[in-house]
């Protein structure tokens, strides 16, 4: 029988962290920004069916990068925890902080236990309050650390260059349109060049304080995205493909006009509009 090699605890943890980090950095970045009326989440995601950003509860959203099956398990656990608590107590008793804690404990335990492979995920738990000051944005790493973010944050591959781009340009209290434009520009930014990401390859969702329903989560549809993004770049192909986009930029100079777009969608159910 051979004697196992001695591995120091420091080395063991470093190896596990490297393993998790490597897995996460392979994926695309995901950004989260606080804007005047809530929090916006954006990521490059060509799949319309497999979501990276999801609704957890009335005012709480979840966004993640990394291994899909792992963060999907965490998402489902979050929905179950939240619904269970809301059912047993009251809807107001479900908090983002509680959820972030539960995730942190879980990720931390898995990371430091010898028996399990560390999760290759990084995630956001966002919660909106009655005003922008009450909004919370937690970033959780693969080892269960929780960071209370303010304003903006990026996770996933290239998170550093994307985060750096945001740091230079982020302004507090921006409109939803401006926040989305900045988020998408940041996602397309690398140290070498900037590229434009097509609206159909984007997944954008918001927690919107202005929604009249108790459930504040809302996905921004590709058609709306084309309008928002097109009004700045106004590239000819976009205008040809979507005749409506031609009218939209014309209305944009009016200050109130940008607000009208998201409010239009308000009658839709937050997850899957059945009437399309």
């Amino acid at each position: 029988m051979s004697t196992p090699f001695y591995v120091s605890p420091e080395q063991l943890m470093r190896d596990r962290a490297d393993f998790a980090r490597k897995g996460i950095s392979r994926g695309r970045a995901l950004v989260s920004l606080q804007y005047a009326d809530g929090i916006v989440f954006a990521s490059e995601n060509p799949s319309a069916a497999l979501h990276k950003v999801s609704e957890i509860y009335d005012r709480i959203a979840f966004a993640a990068v990394g291994r899909y099956n792992e963060f999907e398990n965490l998402r489902i656990a979050g929905v179950r925890l939240a619904d269970m608590r809301g059912y047993a107590y009251d809807r107001r008793d479900v908090t983002g902080r509680g959820l972030a804690n539960a995730y942190a404990q879980t990720l931390g335990t898995i990371f430091s236990s010898g028996g399990e492979k560390p999760y290759e995920v990084e995630l956001f738990v966002g919660e909106i309050g009655d005003s922008a000051e009450d909004d919370q944005l937690y970033r959780l790493t693969y080892d269960g650390q929780v960071v209370d973010e303010h304003g903006f944050a990026a996770i996933g591959g290239a998170a550093e260059s994307v985060g750096g781009y945001l740091k230079e340009r982020y302004t507090k209290g921006a409109s939803l349109e401006d926040a989305i434009r900045l988020a998408v520009a940041a996602l397309g930014h690398t140290d070498t060049d900037d590229r434009e990401i097509a609206a159909k390859d984007l997944e954008v969702a918001v927690l919107d304080r202005n929604r009249t329903q108790p459930r504040k989560f809302r996905r921004i549809r590709p058609a709306t995205l084309v309008e928002i993004l097109g009004s700045v770049t106004a590239t000819p192909p976009v205008e040809e493909a979507k005749p409506t986009a031609v009218e939209a930029p014309a209305e944009k100079p009016v200050d109130e006009a940008p607000l009208a777009t998201p409010v239009d969608d308000d009658g839709d159910p937050p997850i899957a509009p059945p009437l399309d």
Partner: peptide, 27 residues
Amino acid sequence: MTESRIPAAYMTPGTSSFADFLTAQSP
């Protein structure tokens, strides 16, 4: 919510029915 790790049952894919989950977890 919970102060420690999320129970395994919550992390297990399976039912999308809350009533079934409730029956199994907190009848």
